[in-house]
């Protein structure tokens, strides 16, 4: 297991380097400079050159790339152009909190409701609750989360005034965005759980469990759920990451100072170092979550052996 994880971390670094390189060169293809375009164009040409010189933007792209990679290797992601002079890592860290809180809450809500719905739907196949779950699943996947966010904001926040409409002042502010984000999670997890459970409930070992005299609840919980959960764990990886990136619209609607809005702003302003910083952050987070998912597999299903461990059997 340890060797496997070490190997995966090496792969992680290689993957990151490839992502960094691609993003770096693509980003340089974007028109414009990190500086305010109107005011920058008013400056005399020698001052323009001076400014570009100061930030090393006059060097050939390949030199800039080399310098950047060296700095990253030292753990220095540079300073933001937009948030004048603040280190990028600081800017990102300051914005992670709200996004992480909303994302985490959305996953917890979606996971628990989704699992329960999926299990009941499969258990009571072709019943009212099964159809209800399928409707929820289709709605949850097809209705974009910003529509849900806007509706929730209008009714619960504005009309009934139960929860804050927007802004980031107390924990209460995180409820509506979390709920808005959780819909699609609920839908996806319910659907995957239901499909897999239906399959598992047909398996011979479920009949064995019934023949032992277990009641339906025990059959479901001890024998069906654990064997059905692998696909859910699989999609949970992308979901976790998606909630951080995809929360962009929701963060905007609720005026939350999260990492999603930071990402968009950085692209709009050609804030090179911030774009790169967030890319590194997202990609390493994604790859890390994938690693966790793969390790979880082997914990859930003993038949799955992690690669370097496989020889013994």
């Amino acid at each position: 297991m340890f060797r496997y994880i070490c190997k995966r971390i090496v792969y992680l670094l290689i993957t990151l380097l490839i992502i960094l390189t691609t993003t770096f060169f693509l980003m340089k293809k974007l028109p414009g400079t990190p500086f305010d375009s109107e005011r920058f164009s008013l400056l005399p040409p020698e001052q323009q050159t001076q400014m570009l010189e100061k930030y090393g933007l006059n060097d050939p792209v390949i030199v800039q790339y080399g310098k950047y990679i060296l700095n990253v290797a030292k753990g220095d992601f540079g300073t933001s152009f937009f948030y004048s002079g603040q280190p990028v890592s600081g800017v990102i860290l300051g914005r992670i909190g709200p996004s992480a809180l909303i994302g985490l809450q959305a996953i917890l809500i979606g996971l628990s409701i989704g699992l329960i719905l999926g299990i009941i739907a499969a258990w009571r196949h072709n019943s009212g609750i099964d159809y209800f779950t399928m409707v929820i699943a289709v709605l949850g996947v097809s209705v974009p989360n910003f529509v849900a966010a806007a509706l929730l904001q209008y009714f619960i926040g504005l009309k009934w005034g139960i929860l804050p409409v927007a802004f980031w002042e107390s924990w209460k502010c995180s409820i509506l965005p979390s709920v808005a984000l959780s819909f699609s999670v609920t839908a996806m997890i319910a659907r995957f759980m239901r499909t897999e459970m239906l399959d598992v409930l047909e398996q011979d070992y479920i009949v064995t469990a019934k023949a032992k005299g277990l009641n339906q609840f025990k059959v479901l919980m001890r024998h069906a759920v654990r064997n059905s959960i692998i696909p859910v764990v699989t999609i949970l990886g992308p979901i976790v990451v998606n909630l951080l990136t995809g929360s962009l619209a929701v963060e905007n609607i609720y005026s939350i100072p999260g990492i999603g809005s930071l990402f968009v702003d950085s692209i709009k302003t050609n804030d090179y170092s911030t774009i790169m910083g967030i890319t590194v952050f997202y990609s390493s987070f994604y790859i890390f979550v994938m690693l966790v998912v793969d390790v979880l597999y082997s914990v859930i299903d003993p038949r799955i052996r992690l690669a370097s461990n496989g020889k013994g059997d």
Binding site: D204, Y205, V207, A209, H223, R226, N227, I300, P302
Partner: peptide, 10 residues
């Protein structure tokens, strides 16, 4: 079928 009659995760 003994191959499928036991719970694989227990």
């Amino acid at each position: 079928d003994p191959m499928t009659s036991l719970n694989p995760t227990m």
